[in-house]
Amino acid sequence: MKIVEISHVSRVYKVGDHEQKALDDVSLELESGKTIVILGPSGAGKSTLLNLLGGLDSPTSGTIKIKGKDISTLNADQLAEYRASGVGFIFQAYNLIPTLTVLENVALVKEIAKDPLSSHDMLREVGLGEHMYKFPVELSGGEQQRVSIARAVTKNPDILLCDEPTGALDTETGVMVLKLLQSMAKEHGKTTIIVTHNQNIAKMADVVVHVKNGKIKEVINNDKPLAVEEVEW
């Protein structure tokens, strides 16, 4: 089943009088349940693509369909609803709420998601059962990213969007986080889209999308994705 259908999408930013094309007539279709890695150098437009998919931003032209529904014409409230149930975000900087405990950070999404999972279960699943009542600052970076994963999955979305999820972590922790991400996605049947400039991560993907200068250079289907452990870091 096609979960993502992007057709002729452009995103133009205006900086003063100057126009900057972050995405230039991009079309892309992605299958449900796969792990997709979007690769490219910085400034290629991969984060813009991710933001559009996540409903954080709207395209200047073109359509984006998620599960057949066009999200490019939604208003602010409808976009919020889409973000609340349709996608889960995992950021490089975790973006946890510092004034809420680990559990509260995760449980927070239950107030808005349509069909959320148990936040307790999810925290146990990511191995933070012991740290539920701590505040984010009391956790290490890897642990914080795990909270962020738990928060994203608890919403029970169709798609997990990860923006350089290991960017702020050392290799060892990064591998653990990726492993967790892969297993969570498999177990809960989520489509995972990871944006990165790290070539190695691409080896674990079902599909690798190369982006450069606001255009999709090539889409490579990987028949034999490696397990995280098998990738050489």
């Binding site: 409230d77 919020a80 149930s85 975000f89 709420i97 999404v109 808005i112 928060r151 919403k155």
Partner: peptide, 9 residues
């Protein structure tokens, strides 16, 4: 963050 997570304005 709240907004990204899906809270409405």
């Amino acid at each position: 963050t709240l907004k990204v997570v899906g809270f409405k304005d």
